[in-house]
Design a protein around this nucleic acid. Structure first.
Length: 282
DNA sequence: ACTATTTCCTGGATGC
DNA sequence: TGCATCCAGGAAATAG
């Protein structure tokens, strides 16, 4: 399940491999496609564009697209963006045309270098969209919430301190912070010693500050290990991540807490499995 | 304005 | 072995 560290890893891998390449043609799969923009519009923005950069915004992969003006002179201009959300099972593959097309391949971009960029997503929770940069949206795509790694501590506290919802639900709310998902919410709460069901508004300023530090710590550690491969996540090179080996609570129901050996508990919050140590977290 | 719940989707795991 | 059922979850949609 790609969350911030996994999307960061994929975006970095793609940037390394395909930045500078040019999209020559685009194929999109049959309906129902996982699209947020009309297929026609996606094709028109992508085709003949140069991929200037690939980067992460929240849980989205953003491709900054350039075109040179009609007469071929002058500097390339940033004219649009391709936004990819991997959902649960989405994958971006840099492939050779001779490579087997995987089942559930929904998009294939032919690149000038001869390679193909493919979007594969069995569960179809992923989404594709384009943004056309014009006077209406000069700044381009923006996530609805703050970047967890950039938000300052006082801003973080302010985002959560008045929420009556469980802190776990608040962490998953992309309109507050963009990028935190189920795994890293649980791991950050464990490190901060806070139970997932605690109302956000019941937490002290100190606790929220601690949570902020714990979240940044766990996200950075996960990025350093290439993310967590729990089910089918792989990076742009088809490699798994390694942070799943560092999980302290996620997926460890019944296993002993690594600190106190109390069995880890699992409860459902907002329809999501939430893991915590009943002894270490309050 | 918030918060909680339901829905989408498929593959893998489980149970009889 | 085979078939039915359950479960995973990001985020939009719906309900309260």
């Amino acid at each position: 399940m790609p969350e911030l560290p996994e999307v960061e890893t994929v975006a970095r891998g793609l940037d390394k491999r395909i930045a500078g390449d040019v999209i020559e043609s685009v194929w999109l799969g049959e309906k129902p496609e996982p699209l947020k923009s009309p297929a026609k519009q996606i094709v028109s923005v992508l085709e003949r564009s140069r991929i200037a950069h690939v980067r992460r915004v929240g849980k989205h992969i953003v491709f900054d697209l350039e075109r040179t003006s009609r007469n071929g002179k002058g500097k390339p201009q940033l004219h649009g963006q391709w936004i990819v959300h991997l959902g649960m099972t989405g994958r971006m593959q840099v492939a050779q045309p001779s490579d087997e097309i995987l089942k559930h391949t929904h998009a294939v971009l032919k690149l000038k270098s001869g390679r193909e960029l493919r979007f594969v997503d069995p569960r179809r929770f992923g989404r594709l969209a384009v943004v056309q940069l014009d006077t209406k949206t000069p700044a381009g795509f923006a996530a609805p919430g703050d970047e967890p790694l950039s938000a300052q501590a006082d801003r973080f506290v302010e985002l959560f301190r008045k929420r009556k919802t469980p802190i776990k639900s608040a962490l998953l709310n992309q309109k507050l912070l963009s990028g935190v998902g189920n795994i890293y919410a649980d791991e950050a709460l464990f490190r901060a010693g806070i139970r997932p069901k605690r109302r956000a508004s019941s937490l002290s300023r100190e606790q929220l500050t601690k949570l902020h530090a714990s979240l940044i710590e766990v996200l950075n550690e996960a990025i350093a290990l290439g993310g967590s491969s729990v089910s089918d996540y792989v990076n742009a090179d088809g490699e798994t991540g390694f942070f799943q080996l560092q999980h302290r609570v996620y997926g460890r129901e019944g296993d002993p807490c690594l600190v106190c050996e109390t069995p880890i508990r699992r409860v459902i919050i907002a329809g999501r499995s939430s893991h915590y140590c009943p002894h270490c977290q309050h």
